[in-house]
């Protein structure tokens, strides 16, 4: 297990190195930030001084080296626009996105998996067909449109829930969280529901396919022959047997929602990192873009590592292979 962990950590470090180089080069290629930073009527001296101050007169490899050196110390540079450290800027926005993404994948898992298992257990039932038809909608209706309809219905027409912003937050661990207050929870409800629809549909389909397959297996027949109730079979046998693909998709969806909840955050004016990256791209705020992308890569690598460890916890056969 330890060897497996070390091997995975090394892989993760390599991925991070490659990502940092790619991101740095990619962002370097998209324009000169100096044009944005200083006014067009500045003198040549001011221009040159600014370029020197940001280290932009150095060759590319040297700039990357400086960037990498700082990165290893946890320094992502300062925002050109806000003139505060990028890490601080992103970490200030990240909790908002984190709770939104987590809320949406949790809704997807805790509602989607039971519905999917039911639909797989009774594939011909009317309710199952209804669930599956709804899941097709979840896949195919665009998120932004659903978001607008949700606002129109629940915020404008019914007036039950607020249409945007985070509402009241509570500071825990140095960050503000909405889900800890009733007001914040109300603000969280609509965007989280909006983001969860796609994940819900995915979880339903995965859980259904897995359940249908497992229900026909000898494991289930044998459990029935031993007199286990259908409920016990579903809860103790089937759920464990279909868990691995569900955990995989849960991890991937969590990562991609963290990184790319942009549309939903924009529609619901949710002050998360998605909005931050859009703003910094418009302003050509290079350190923020680079820092953000590196952080996203870091999150993805971490989530994948956790998912791999979860596999080993879920399937004892993988534990042995990893040990060998």
């Amino acid at each position: 297990m330890l060897g497996f962990l070390i091997q995975r950590l090394l892989q993760a470090a390599l991925v991070m190195l490659a990502m940092s180089a790619l991101v740095f080069l990619g962002v370097y290629a998209i324009g000169n930030p100096i044009d944005v930073l200083i006014s067009p009527d500045a003198t040549q001296d001011i221009r040159a001084a600014t370029i020197r101050a940001y280290g932009l007169d150095r060759p590319l490899w040297e700039q990357y080296g400086v960037f990498l050196g700082r990165l290893l110390r946890g320094d992502l540079g300062r925002s050109f626009v806000f003139n505060i450290p990028v890490l601080e800027l992103v970490l200030d926005r990240l909790p908002a996105t984190l709770e939104l993404a987590l809320a949406s994948v949790l809704i997807g898992a805790f509602v989607g998996v039971p519905l999917g298992i039911y639909a797989g257990y009774r594939p011909d039932g009317a309710l199952s067909r209804g669930i599956m038809a709804a899941s097709v909608l979840g896949f195919s209706v665009p998120t932004f449109w659903v978001g607008l309809i949700l606002i129109l219905t629940f915020a404008v027409n019914l007036g039950w829930l607020p249409a945007g912003n985070r509402g009241e937050t509570v500071r825990v661990l140095g960050a503000g969280w909405s889900f800890l207050t009733w007001d914040g929870l109300q603000h969280l409800a609509l965007p989280a529901l909006n983001l969860s629809l796609f994940k819900l549909a995915m979880m339903i389909r995965l859980a259904r396919a897995g359940t249908r397959e497992v229900m026909l297996s000898d494991t289930v027949k044998f459990a029935r022959a031993a007199g286990l109730s259908e409920w016990t079979i579903l809860r103790r046998h089937v759920l464990r047997l279909i868990a691995i693909p569900l955990v995989t998709v849960f991890g991937l969806e969590f990562g991609s929602t963290l990184a790319f909840a942009v549309v939903t955050e924009t529609i619901f004016s949710w002050p998360g990192v998605g909005k931050l990256i859009i703003e910094s791209i418009t302003a050509l705020d290079r350190p923020v873009m680079v820092g953000y992308l590196v952080l996203v890569a870091f999150l993805f690598v971490t989530i994948n590592l956790v998912v791999d460890l979860a596999y080993a916890a879920l399937d004892p056969r993988l534990r042995r292979r990893a040990r060998a």
């Binding site: 000898d218 459990a223 046998h237 047997l241 399937d315 004892p316």
Partner: peptide
């Protein structure tokens, strides 16, 4: 091999 559940002791 098919009747016993591989992920439970």
């Amino acid at each position: 091999a098919a009747t016993l559940n591989p992920v439970l002791t």
